[in-house]
Design a protein around this nucleic acid. Structure first.
Length: 275
DNA sequence: AACAAGACCTGCATGC
DNA sequence: TGCATGCAGGTCTTGT
């Protein structure tokens, strides 16, 4: 599902229609997504105005004018639709209506969830998150501190939202490729120079992806239905057997981009360029 | 504490 | 055509 660039794109798409607008009606079509919706979910939100629609890691955070903040996670297949199909689809589980718009949360796999909290800073799922990768505070020093004592592969360490948040399977593969680092290298073996390169790669790949409206794969699209374009810029993700864009070796001879499984998930990388 | 594997759920592409 | 298999952008939970 959506990783940081996609969630940021969704937040930007939803902001014009939700931020500053009152929720006239909130409809829940089932009592649970990944977790049960909190008690009184629709009643608490009905009539509330969304003051700020923000993002933290892969979470959308909607502060209201009441003593409650709505936290939303898109899981793997969650998206918001606001075209004229909103509310008609089998997997439209939650529907928000304002004076001007109908927005449906559509999520076939239901790995996403929503929660209400009076105190987002101490919400159990937000309080454990590591630094935002695009913040200036996230630098090589911070990354090295997170990697300290970790024998786990770089791939798994970067997926750990407590070390740095917002990265998922795609952007970890892409960042490691840009940094020229093997996904199998133990995290704690990184020195300052390589850490610096990795931080730069993470920031650049996320920034470029946001600029292109995120990546559109399978069922993800921006809130207004338009498509992201960053998937065309993938160097390694989903490109098993293709030529590595960073070296000019012949894929027929070298096998090209390799796919391996780490932490039960696919990793794509170039074994010649990433050490 | 750190780590790997399993769990959750649906839809789609592939191969027989 | 039907059926089985494997795969998918996440992350919490379990067990070592």
């Amino acid at each position: 599902m959506p990783e940081l660039p996609e969630v940021e794109t969704v937040a930007r798409g939803l902001r014009p229609i939700l931020q500053g607008h009152r929720l006239d009606r909130v409809i829940t079509r089932r009592p649970d997504l990944r977790f049960p919706l909190p008690d009184g979910f629709a009643q608490v939100l009905t009539g509330a105005t969304i003051k700020v629609l923000g993002r933290r890691a892969k979470y959308l955070i909607a502060e209201t004018d009441r003593d409650v903040t709505l936290i939303m996670h898109l899981g793997m297949s969650g998206r918001f639709v606001m075209d004229d199909t909103a509310g008609t689809h089998k997997h439209d589980h939650v529907i928000f209506e304002t004076a001007g718009s109908t927005v449906a949360y559509r999520d076939p796999r239901r790995f996403g969830f929503m929660d209400l909290t009076a105190d987002p800073d101490h919400h159990p799922m937000l309080s454990i998150l590591g630094p935002e990768p695009l913040d200036d505070a996230f630098d090589a020093k911070v990354l090295l501190a997170g990697f300290k004592g970790r024998r786990t592969p770089l791939k798994a360490a970067l997926l750990d939202q407590k070390i740095v948040c917002g990265l998922g399977n795609i952007y970890v593969c892409e960042a490691l490729f840009r940094a020229g680092l093997s996904p199998e290298r133990q995290a704690a073996t990184l020195g300052p120079k390589r850490a610096e390169r990795l931080v730069g790669a993470i920031k650049s790949v996320l920034t470029e992806a946001i600029e292109k409206g995120g990546s559109t794969l399978r069922d993800y699209a921006q809130a207004d239905g338009t498509l992201g374009y960053f998937q065309h810029s993938f160097s390694v993700y989903g490109r098993e057997g293709e030529a590595c864009p960073g070296c000019d070796c012949d894929p027929a001879r070298t096998g090209g981009i390799r796919r391996i499984v780490q932490s039960n998930r696919s990793t794509f990388y170039c074994p010649r360029r990433q050490k």
